[in-house]
């Protein structure tokens, strides 16, 4: 258990180093930040001074090391465009992103898990056909397009929900559904497949032939095992959402981390982009670590060696 943890942690650290270094390099290839910050009529000497003041004349590796050192202390740098600390900007937007991420995530689980089990138990029925077809189509349609169509129908045509923005409960409904539909399409298909596989497994057949009640077979022997792949997939989905639902947040003018990042890209606010990438990658890595630990609870066979 301990060795497993150490190995996973080491991998997580290496991954984050690669991600941060890549972003750092890409950012430096995109141009001189001083040209963006300094006023147009600034003299060469003034620019040079600014460069020195910001530490931009140091070797790249030194700059990177100091960036990482600061990041470990929660300082992700300074956004010159917004005139604010990057970590403050992210923390300010995080509540909105978390609110949307968890609402969408829970909604998708509430749809996918019961539906997936139901159609697995009634396979080849009309319901099965309908649900799998809808899931397949839901997986194929561009998610932002579904969001736009929801706006066109519920906000523009029926006028029962706001088009976009942030506020009361009514504002979160459409973006949450947009997120949930995509994730539910994937999870329903997976839940169904996983349940079918478990139901055909030897231990379930044994349990049945022992004469256990259907309910016991279903919930004690099948459900827990069928949930294992779902936990992995759901973890990945949640991790992606917490990193920022970039397009969904943009469409619905949702003031979260995702929209912050998209705007930062357009404004060439490099420190902010870098900060969000690092934040999103960290969220991804940490949640996956938690998912691995969760395995131990669900599946005692996992020895974590």
């Amino acid at each position: 258990m301990f060795r497993f943890l150490i190995r996973r942690l080491a991998m997580a650290v290496i991954v984050l180093l690669i991600v941060s270094f890549t972003t750092f390099i890409v950012g430096h290839m995109t141009g001189d930040p001083v040209e963006l910050i300094a006023p147009e009529n600034a003299t060469r000497e003034a620019k040079e001074q600014l460069r020195e003041y910001l530490g931009l004349n140091r070797p790249l590796l030194v700059q990177y090391t100091s960036y990482i050192g600061n990041a470990l202390q929660g300082d992700l740098g300074f956004s010159f465009v917004q005139q604010a600390a990057v970590s403050d900007l992210i923390m300010e937007r995080l509540p909105a992103t978390l609110k949307l991420a968890f609402t969408g995530f829970i909604l998708s689980l509430v749809i996918a898990v019961p539906l997936g089990i139901f159609i697995a138990l009634n396979r080849n029925s009309v319901w099965d056909f309908l649900a799998t077809s809808v899931a397949m189509i839901g997986q194929s349609a561009p998610n932002f397009w579904i969001g736009l169509m929801l706006i066109a129908f519920f906000a523009v045509h029926l006028k029962i929900l706001p088009v976009s923005g942030y506020g009361g409960v009514s504002y979160i409904i459409l973006p949450a559904i947009t997120i949930a539909l995509q994730s539910a399409a994937r999870l329903t298909r997976l839940m169904r497949a996983s349940m079918l596989e478990v139901l055909n497994a030897d231990y379930v057949r044994t349990a049945r032939s022992k004469g256990l009640r259907q309910r016991t077979v279903l919930w004690v022997h099948s459900f827990r095992n069928a949930m294992i792949p779902i936990v992995t997939m759901a973890g990945l989905e949640l991790a992606e959402l917490i990193g920022g639902a970039f397009i969904t947040e943009t469409i619905f003018a949702w003031p979260g981390v995702g929209r912050l990042a998209v705007n930062a890209v357009y404004q060439r606010d490099f420190p902010l982009v870098q900060g969000v990438v690092l934040f999103a990658a960290t969220a991804f890595v940490v949640i996956n670590l938690l998912v691995d630990l969760l395995y131990v609870l669900i599946d005692p066979r996992v020895k974590l060696s």
């Binding site: 991998m11 290496i14 991954v15 984050l16 690669i18 991600v19 890549t22 972003t23 890409v26 290839m29 995109t30 141009g31 992606e240 990193g243 920022g244 970039f246 397009i247 990042a261 998209v262 890209v265 357009y266 060439r268 982009v273 969000v276 990438v277 999103a280 990658a281 991804f284 890595v285 996956n288």
Partner: peptide, 23 residues
């Protein structure tokens, strides 16, 4: 395997618009 892990944790769409809007 390290690179694959790193790539998976990258917010791809953000990196893509970053590269494309710059270059």
């Amino acid at each position: 395997s390290v690179v694959i892990n790193a790539q998976l944790s990258f917010p791809f769409i953000l990196l893509a618009i970053f590269i494309l809007s710059t270059f």
